[in-house]
């Protein structure tokens, strides 16, 4: 059986209780699992939070991650989206150095990637970009030579297409 390291995006529905985030984060660090990004916020039902975790590992590790997450008493549901249809979005705020020569180029890039400029100063533009992480990476790569001053990425959040991934979904 060949098993490759692969990136996985996992959605975890948890009780919105004190200490849950530490339980999940502690599980990853205590067992040596990777966390590439993690985002957490309440859902429509405010007794439940949704965590989106991007992690990586081979099949055996991913199976352990899923099982260990499920084992936490506060975990209601774990969904690994990797082999299914899902929409994925990440938000990035990027502050770019702007000079007479580069302003037009920056605006063109923002435009092409359907971003918005959200703040302007004499020497910089701050823009927001949303999209799949690969799109964000493409923007970052283009802006880097021009001069990125600061960058913040939210980490991706995902939802399954159709019925996949809801509380009622048994998958």
């Amino acid at each position: 059986m060949v098993s490759h390291e692969a990136k996985h995006t996992i959605s975890v529905l948890v009780e919105n209780e004190f200490g849950v985030l530490t339980r999940v984060a502690g599980l990853f660090s205590g067992r040596g699992f990777n966390i590439e990004s993690l985002s957490v916020a309440p859902t429509l039902d405010d007794s439940i939070s949704r965590m989106t975790i991007v992690t990586s590992g081979d099949d055996r590790i991913l199976e352990q991650i899923t099982k260990q997450l499920n084992k936490l008493i506060d975990t209601i549901k774990v969904i690994d989206f990797t082999d299914s249809e899902y929409v994925e979005r990440e938000l990035a705020l990027i502050k770019v150095q702007a000079t007479e020569d580069t302003r037009a180029e920056i605006l063109r890039i923002v435009d092409i990637f359907r971003g918005n400029v959200v703040d302007v100063t004499a020497r910089s533009y701050t823009m927001e970009i949303t999209g799949a992480p690969s799109k964000i990476q493409a923007v970052v790569d283009l802006l880097k030579p021009i001069g990125i001053q600061e960058l913040v990425r939210s980490g991706p959040v995902v939802l399954g297409r159709g019925a996949k991934g809801g509380l009622s979904d048994k998958g």
Binding site: F18, G19, T22, R23, G26, L27, G30, I73
Partner: peptide, 15 residues
């Protein structure tokens, strides 16, 4: 509670 998180099946702080 923090110290025993990884050595209990579950733990509680009663507030």
């Amino acid at each position: 509670v923090g110290m025993t998180r990884s050595i209990t099946k579950h733990n509680y702080l009663v507030k």
